[in-house]
Simulated assay, not measured.
Amino acid sequence: MPAKARLSQAAVEQRRQDVLRYVADRGALRIDALADRFGVSLMTMHRDLDDLAGRRLLRKERGRAVAFPALTMETATRFRESAGLAAKTALCAAVAGLITPGSTLLMDDSTTLYPLAGMLAWRGRDARLTVVTNSVGLAQRLGGAPGVDVTLLGGRYQSEFNSCTGPDVTRGLARRHADLVLMSATAVLDGHLFHPLREYAEVKEAMLAAADRAALVVDSSKLGRRATYAYGTAARYGTVVTDSAAPAAELAALRATGAAVRVVEPGAG
């Protein structure tokens, strides 16, 4: 019998993400049951779970894989960064056209914007951009990019989200002026924007107040959902960019606020 073909690293990572979602949906599962469910050996499943636990994406304990609480999984950067990457890349490619050389940008801590950092860095010295952000992750991705000057707004460091919040951040924003703010949202329902944590809602409001123009970059998985703290509607954004899986009712609600809504195909970036 011929040897079984070795999976690529991308295929292994896809399986691990599938395992993560399966555990997240069920809360906790025995490791041997997971091995049976995904058709792999017990040793392979242990390796997968060791990797996921090492990245703090789940817990491995007493022969079980255990999910983190739902709030943590919905908001923490380590979960959001690899989710919906094709859609995020397409959204960022679409919004990149709003950025003009020589401008000052505000960018929030949304992982939706992470692909945009690579696009800005690729532009090179002709971009001559100033980026102000509370996101350590974005600052790291843009650091050293030719023609891009990065200012990191310091404050209370939130390790789960790899970003800063608090009065130091909002005061810093009050002293700044930007040409354009780019941000996402954790939840959008009927054109209203929500975040589960008050501190982040306050940062988003301060960013909106500091910029001439605003664009909301939000993938379809965020639409039709509500969280604890509301911070206005899509009417405060001149442009909303989302993907083609967005529910029709939510698109209609966004357009009813007066925002210009652009819909892109995942993978088009």
Rank of each mutant, 00 (worst) to 15 (best):
V150Y: 01
R6N: 00
T228R: 08
V19C: 13
D212S: 13
V136A: 15
S82L: 10
G102C: 03
R225H: 11
E265K: 12
A215N: 01
L98H: 12
V95Y: 07
V12Q: 09
A252R: 15
R37P: 01
A227M: 14
P101H: 14
L216D: 05
D25M: 06
E160V: 00
L105R: 07
L98Q: 15
L105T: 07
G232T: 03
G224Q: 07
A94R: 13
L193R: 02
H46V: 15
G97H: 08
M107D: 04
R176G: 12
A185G: 04
R225Y: 06
C92Y: 05
T75W: 05
R62C: 08
S159Y: 07
H195V: 07
D243H: 03
E74Q: 12
S8F: 05
P69I: 08
G269K: 09
Q140W: 03
A117D: 03
G155W: 06
L197N: 03
V261S: 06
L52V: 10
T89R: 09
R213M: 09
R62I: 02
S159K: 12
T72Y: 02
R198H: 12
M119D: 12
Q14F: 06
A127K: 04
A96Q: 15
K222Y: 11
R156H: 14
L98V: 12
D219Q: 04
A174K: 14
T104F: 07
E13P: 06
P2A: 15
A24L: 04
A87S: 13
A249E: 15
D48Y: 06
K60L: 12
A33Y: 10
G224W: 04
A3H: 07
G224N: 04
E61G: 01
A260G: 12
T165N: 05
V218Q: 00
G191E: 04
D212Y: 05
H177R: 15
T75F: 05
L251C: 09
T77P: 03
L153H: 10
A256F: 02
D36V: 15
R47T: 09
R236K: 12
P101L: 13
D168S: 15
G97P: 07
A83N: 11
V12Y: 05
K204R: 10
G154L: 14
T72I: 13
M183Y: 05
S135C: 07
A35Q: 08
L152C: 00
A253D: 13
V136S: 01
A67V: 04
